Computed example of a mutant assay.
Amino acid sequence: MRQTAGMTVRETLRHWGLSLALVPLIAYVVVAYAAGWYTVLDTASLIVHEAGHFFFRPFGWTLYLLGGSIYQLILPSLFVWTFLRSEYRPGVQVSCAWLGQNAMNVATYIGDAQERALPLITGDVETHDWWQLLGAAGLLPYDDVIAGGVVFFAVLCFLAALIAPRAL
């Protein structure tokens, strides 16, 4: 094998191969978010979201509404943390990408709070979690700003997924 900066091509691919494989997936998630496409990954996120409502139901109205989105971020974060502790780089990378995808999904939902155009499983726009939460907090006019912050977090997760071989 040809050597490049102390590493053979095989070693380089072994080290960075998963990052290269994640690029198309991350690009797809970002393009889908920008285009407003609903993907199969969003369907999986919806299942996690609804489970979050179930788990947070005992903790009152606010946490019940936040629970879906919180759980979408907590669940993949637990995987990131677990794989970091065991120093399993591929697990960290995939989990960071999963966390970023869920964050993009949450950002979509937050950004829809004023418009309430997303189809909800209840079929009732009055049950839009973020419309209720931001409305109660007086922050409804800032839904896009808040969503932008969550998108920024998602981008950080995607970058972490891609540079994990360098960082670990």
Results as ranks from 00 to 15, higher is better:
R89N: 05
C96N: 09
W81I: 05
L118T: 04
A35T: 13
Q93T: 03
I47E: 06
P76K: 05
G100Y: 00
D129T: 06
A113Y: 06
R10P: 00
W81Y: 12
S45Q: 09
I47F: 12
T8R: 06
L84E: 00
F54T: 12
N102W: 02
N105D: 12
T12C: 09
A117I: 09
A117N: 13
V94G: 02
T82F: 09
L133Q: 02
F79K: 00
L20R: 02
G123Y: 02
A107Y: 06
W61T: 10
V94H: 03
A35Q: 15
L46I: 09
T39Y: 02
L99V: 00
L99Q: 03
S95A: 15
E126L: 10
M1Y: 10
A137G: 08
F79Y: 08
W130H: 05
L120M: 08
G36L: 07
V9A: 14
F83I: 01
G100Q: 04
A97Y: 03
I110L: 04
H53K: 03
G123N: 07
T62V: 15
L84W: 00
W131N: 14
Y109N: 10
I110T: 02
E11S: 11
V9H: 12
L75D: 00
D124L: 11
H49W: 10
V40L: 15
L84R: 00
A44P: 02
G36K: 05
A5P: 04
P90F: 02
L84G: 01
D112Q: 08
L134M: 07
I70N: 01
A103H: 01
A51S: 12
W81H: 03
A21Y: 04
M104Q: 06
Q3R: 13
P24W: 04
G123Q: 08
V40W: 13
G6K: 04
E87G: 03
V31A: 11
L118Y: 06
I47W: 12
L99R: 01
T8A: 03
A117F: 06
R14H: 14
S19G: 15
R14S: 15
N105L: 07
A27Q: 07
F79M: 03
I70W: 09
L25T: 11
E115V: 10
E50P: 05
Y64N: 14
L25D: 01
R85T: 00
W37H: 13
S86C: 09
L22C: 07
Q114F: 04
F59L: 15
A5I: 10
L118G: 04
A21L: 15
R85W: 01
L84T: 02
A113W: 04
G60L: 10
Y109Q: 10
T39W: 02
N102T: 01
R2W: 10
D129A: 11
L41P: 00
A103W: 00
T8L: 05
D129C: 07
S86E: 11
A21H: 05
A34K: 11
Q101M: 14
